[in-house]
Amino acid sequence: MNVFIREMKSNRKSLIIWCIGIFLLIASSMGKYAGLSASGQSMNELLAQMPKSFQAIMGIGTFDLSTPIGYYGVLFAYLVVMATIHATMLGANIISKEEREKTAEFLFAKPVSRNRIITSKLLASFVNILIFNFVTLISSNFLVQNYSSQAIIGDITILMGGMFILQLMFLFIGTAIAAISKNPKTAPSLSTGTLLITFMLSVAIDMNSRIEKLKYLTPFKYYDAKILLFDRNFDAVYLIQSAVIISVLFRITYVFYKKRDLYI
């Protein structure tokens, strides 16, 4: 419990800054929507004439930008990028920082097992990403609802559900890499590198339909706003795949961290 509280305290500031950032991102984007919606359908027509690769990079795809939720669907891709960067960094740092900041000799000389320390740290990370997700949900609903006549909480909740699974996956990518990595300084950069590669892959798939089969390799494709908003449901294959990835990474985090020498 003491390690959990310590981690909550030490991550508090950064979490607050992230939450303010995410609120501002949504607020400013929806502010732009106000201007955009005045032009009505002409925006959709204009964007439809843009090259497909441009649309893919911007994440526009097939969204109807004239509706608030369609516009939000594009914004969601950016929210996901922020949420996963936060989760990855959090996961990599929370595990590797004791070694990086040389507090490992203090903490691990205490009468607690490594497993218990990992559990406390994972629990603290879990609460952190949950708060992140909840703040995004509340701000999104509040800010998007301003422009919409229909209730949109259902749409946003399902998107946030997808985002949370993504957050979990990237959190554990961070912790697993930090647990395996013998040099704690490399863990955060390796994790964000992994994030970047999977994100680029998801953009590449949008741009080029010939490599669509690769979509299973990048979690960013698992919870695509277009599909979520259309189906209003999660794809079972992706859900199972996510569960497998999360449990494998979870296991790796414990097993590797327990077995290796601490970097002191």
Partner: peptide
């Protein structure tokens, strides 16, 4: 245990 080099949570 008193380690040879002391590093603590700075803040």
């Amino acid at each position: 245990y008193l380690p040879s080099e002391i590093f603590y949570y700075d803040k």
